[in-house]
Design a protein around this nucleic acid. Structure first.
Length: 947
RNA sequence: GCUGAAGUGGUGGAAUUGGUAGACACGUUGGACUUAAAAUCCAAUGGUCAGAAAUGGCCGUGCGGGUUCAAGUCCCGCCUUCAGUACCA
């Protein structure tokens, strides 16, 4: 019957599925819905390596499984196709990013198709497609036109705020707003010019333009959000990042801090991921305390989590960037303070982080007044206080905080002790649950909790402070000085941002002569000749037409990468709708994503931002749900096994791994394709790789082989350790690749790719094929096995089948796909040994296998006599009766009475059971009168009864 | 430092959640088929001791204690590795 010709089987079914649109999901169905989504890929020029599809395979198994289970499954795919790499490639080559992006997408699609995924491609979206980013721009506009009302705890239209302002002013408004929002009465508001009104409203809008200190990356020529910076350098490229004041769009995500936190309790995500979002949001409870300054009208506000230690304050510290620093510094201290401020400003984020140990600061000469004792408190500045957290100022309690303690020690500031019976001569005591407060007036004798409540009460009475919850989360900078991103639907009239009318969306990206910033430092869109908005004709016109009446300059920044990915999961529900993000019916039907699969690196980026946008759109009545992803699985990364050849330092001689005797070696990456599975290097291939290696010497092992050193690293082109899925599919087939990736280990764990092991899975599929066609079982026995017969199945083979169904279903539900592969192998071996060839058993087995190995399953299913696609077949049901019916009952007596009966497989010999009982009677357990609760019997082997 | 995850054969990893530790696979060794290689198939494979053998004994899940008839699994105390985060007041 021929060999297992996976290449032709796989292309045959892939073609069949495409032609029949087998996986096309309908928005109208009687079936229950299930939405399975992968984090969509950024199509890079390098194509996919074997690590990328891991999550797609897992989600595809789940999607196919759910279809079998009778669900209407939505399983779409698309591309996150705006982004920096395409733009940098464009800068180097002059090639339009649109073109490279299209080419990369075509390549991705080819690779994805090859792996037999059951995506509904009719719903594909691309973030760089104007028909798609129309809705990204639209959401931006909704944010611009909204404010956050803490009283109703939701976002509301900005027009409602205007109504409130015109009748009551803003004093009663509890809204998320800028810190320096001035108080305005209704009278003042109504007297405002339209421009003044707009300026005030910008303080409330959920996306706003503000002069903020941002992370500027000179090499990339753009600002970065906090989550795009890792260890003080840019995530992409690893370039230094400096602080810079710039006018930028920001998203008022801080308004949603508490709800983003609360929502975590309602979703089924991995705990580590929830933890990192919790930490990122960084809620802390405490108090805000206002310290009046001596000889000045100014007040310094601080946030503290330990208001109970307020009597331990011996100084205050401001961040060097604090706005009051210049004003409060005395003439005598001016020079010292200015020198210090200048010195800290010059230091990059990275230097500051690297050098946390050294203590620096300066005295301002100013004194604050203690709110309770009235004593003067010296005000210092120090860079251990961060401008971006809390109020940028702290009340320093050296006895209770190690940083304050170190600072006080360094500058000889007194360290009063306010803890009863605690020695603070060596360091601060910060364990708040183990102290009793002393030397603290009305707080004496109280512990942390009561003392905190009392202080807050007292502060509120005096009007010098209040209880407060502070969040670490910052508003997210939303502008990027890039070309390849969504343009803002914004133009500027007298420097004030105006939205273009939503009827004229999308505002499409203009053409530019080059993708670099302009000479005067403007973003690339500054090069566009046609980038002005005619507010009468409502269209983009040439910059030359800009005037003061009707034609205005458009925004030159573009949106960041996360803009397009924050709501794409809803667009899939109705991707071609040009009237709405998606129709109400579609959104009501699909609700939100039931299963989302992707990497954990998006914990504090995409996964936080999309939750924010979804909550916002829920508030505004656009979406019916307020969380995008009900359940989330993080697939682990597949790592590469790099190969290093060692070169003698400064020479052209390479030395095999076993022949290095203490010489200084320089490891060099060799392409893994030159190395076989016993770590032997193909010297000729290596020589031919680079001209400089052509004449190299090679010191080999005694047997003549040259061995490389292996090391596990991230899979990357630059490390020459990339394994390509195309090659694997070509050689072993997609079904083998799919099953092997699952077999490699637990889905959520990082693990190195090792091609050697793939033969195990591959030969399983070959065996299955052979078994069906030639009836030769795995153990070589001939028995006509699997050449399907209509005979009823034996009890034992039904038992094997249902054991397998039970285990595989359990595995899929728990995402333990790795153990299922073993289960299939065992089942096929056992059935082969049984000589089972009944259709009754084989059909369900083939269906059961299909989520993992869809192509071979489909092929065998067809051969079993079915003409319909396997994906509409009913999933085999696990029926316990097959496990039960084919077992025998044995009564077990205990202390003379029959205490219970045992269910055991039919093939269990009676002698074994009797031996078990006898063995049990000798145990201490029996002698102590304990009844057994479980009996373990191994046929022909050890027997054990446990109590 | 803090948070989280994890330590099981030569390797990747199983273990019905307290009940035969090492499933399944890779690798290795031996064998079959080949002139040979590849492919394929079969057998053995945690360590150790006894035995010609069948077989049996002992030790074994990072380390040290504990609970239990029974611990990879639970409790206490350590060690190590990885990941995230970091002067967050």
């Amino acid at each position: 019957m021929g060999n297992y010709d996976f290449n032709s089987i796989e292309s045959k079914w892939q073609k069949y599925w495409a032609e029949h649109q087998t996986f096309k999901a309908s928005n109208v169905s009687e079936k229950p819905k299930y939405y399975v989504l992968d984090m969509f890929p950024y199509p890079s020029g390098a194509g996919l390596h074997v690590g990328h599809p891991l999550g797609y395979i897992a989600s595809d198994i789940f999607a196919r499984y759910k279809r079998h289970k009778g669900f209407n499954v939505l399983h779409p795919q698309g591309y996150d196709s705006f982004g920096l790499p395409a733009e940098q490639y464009a800068i180097q080559t002059g090639q339009h990013p649109r073109k490279t992006t299209q080419e990369n997408i075509a390549r991705y699609r080819e690779q994805l198709d090859q792996m037999g995924f059951s995506f509904d491609w009719s719903r594909e979206v691309r973030t760089s497609d104007p028909a798609y980013y129309k809705w990204t721009q639209w959401i931006f506009m909704q944010l611009f036109n909204s404010w956050y009302d803490y009283q109703q705890d939701k976002a509301r239209p900005i027009s409602e705020l205007e109504t409130i302002l015109s009748s009551e002013g803003n004093t009663g408004v509890m809204a998320a707003s800028d810190n320096d929002t001035p108080a305005v009465t209704a009278q003042q508001w109504n007297d405002f010019t339209s421009e003044e009104k707009q300026r005030l409203l910008l303080n409330y809008r959920l996306t706003y333009l503000a002069e903020t200190e941002v992370n500027w990356c000179p090499q990339l020529g753009t600002v970065l959000a906090n989550d795009e910076i890792v260890n003080g350098v840019s995530e992409r490229g690893g370039y230094p990042v400096v602080r810079k004041k710039m006018k930028q769009w920001s998203m008022r995500i801080t308004a949603y801090a508490q709800r983003l936190l609360n929502g975590l309790d309602t979703i089924d995500w991995p705990q580590p991921l929830k933890d990192s979002q919790t930490n990122w949001i960084g809620r802390s409870e405490g108090a805000e305390v206002h310290f009046k300054l001596q000889h000045s009208d100014h007040t310094i506000s601080v946030f503290t989590t330990r208001p109970d230690t307020i009597f331990g304050v011996s100084f205050m510290t401001l961040a060097p960037e604090h706005e009051l620093v210049a004003e409060i510094t005395t003439a005598a201290q001016k020079e010292e303070v200015e020198t210090y401020v200048a010195a800290t400003a010059k230091r990059s984020e990275r230097e500051r982080m690297a050098d946390v140990k050294s203590i620096t600061g300066a005295f301002t000469g100013a004194y604050a007044v203690h709110p309770f004792t009235g004593k003067p408190i010296p005000v210092w500045i120090g860079d251990y206080v961060l401008a971006g957290y809390g109020t940028g100022a702290v009340m320093s309690v050296p006895c209770g905080d190690q940083r304050d303690y170190d600072f006080a020690r360094h500058f000889n500031i007194p360290i009063p002790n306010i803890f009863e019976g605690i020695d603070i001569s060596e360091g601060a005591f910060s364990d708040k649950d183990k102290t009793v407060i002393a030397n603290s007036d009305f707080l004496n004798g109280f512990q942390y909790k009561e003392a905190t409540n009392k202080v807050i009460e007292a502060l509120e009475q005096k009007g010098t402070g209040k209880g407060k919850v502070n969040y670490r989360l910052r508003d997210a900078v939303f502008s990027r000085q890039r070309y390849w991103g969504e343009p803002f639907p914004v133009y500027y009239k007298n420097g004030l941002p105006q939205l273009i009318d939503e009827r004229y969306l999308p505002l499409t990206l203009p053409e530019v002569s080059a993708y670099l910033p302009t000479e005067d430092g403007e973003p690339p869109l500054g090069r566009a000749d046609t980038w002005a908005w005619d507010s009468e004709q409502n269209k983009v016109v040439s910059n030359e037409k800009i005037d003061h009446e009707t034609v205005f300059p458009l925004e030159l920044n573009t949106m960041p990468g996360w803009a397009g990915s924050s709501c794409y999961m809803f667009r899939y529900m109705d991707p071609r709708n040009d009237q709405a993000l998606a129709s109400q019916e579609a959104m009501e039907y699909w609700q939100n994503v039931d299963l989302y699969v992707g990497g954990s690196e998006h914990a504090t980026g995409h996964l936080l931002y999309s939750r924010f946008w979804v909550k916002f759109l829920y508030d505004r009545g656009v979406l019916p749900v307020d969380e995008p992803f009900k359940k989330l699985i993080n697939q682990g990364m597949i790592l590469g096994e790099s190969a290093f050849v060692n070169r003698l330092e400064g020479s052209n001689t390479f030395v095999s791994a076993g022949m290095q005797t203490g010489n200084v070696m320089q490891p060099i990456h060799a392409d893994v394709s030159f190395v076989n599975h016993s770590n032997e290097l193909d010297i000729e291939a290596f020589k031919a790789w680079r001209p400089e290696y052509e004449d190299s010497e090679f010191i080999t092992e005694k047997d003549g082989a040259f061995k490389v050193v292996r090391e596990v690293e991230k899979m990357s082109k630059s490390k020459y350790n990339v394994v390509n899925p195309d090659d694997i599919c070509e050689r072993y087939g997609a079904d083998t690749l799919r099953m092997y990736e699952m077999f490699l280990g637990p889905l959520e764990q990082a693990k190195p790719w090792n091609t050697a092991g793939i033969t195990g899975v591959h030969s399983f599929l070959k065996k299955l094929w052979k078994l069906y066609h030639s009836g030769i079982a795995a153990d070589g026995k001939q028995g006509g096995v699997f050449s399907v017969s209509e005979e009823p199945a034996s009890g034992e083979s039904l038992r094997i089948l249902h054991k397998t169904i039970n285990k595989v279903e359990e595995d899929i539900e728990n995402f333990s796909f790795n153990t299922s592969v073993s289960t299939f192998m065992i089942a096929v071996n056992e059935l082969g040994a049984q000589g089972c060839n009944s259709r009754e058993v084989l059909e369900p087995l083939v269906v059961l296998l299909s989520p993992y190995a869809p192509h071979i399953s489909e092929e065998l299913w067809q051969k079993l006599g079915h003409s319909e696609s396997i994906s509409i077949a009913a999933f085999p049901k696990f029926e316990e009766k097959y496990l039960v019916e084919h077992t025998k009952e044995y009564p077990i007596s205990f202390n003379g009475k029959t205490r219970f009966t045992l269910e055991l497989p039919l093939d269990m010999a009676k002698e074994d059971i009797e031996a078990a009982v006898m063995a049990h009677e000798k145990t201490e357990n029996y002698l102590a009168g304990r009844a057994p609760k479980k009996v373990i019997v191994v046929p022909g082997k050890i027997v054990n009864i446990v109590g």
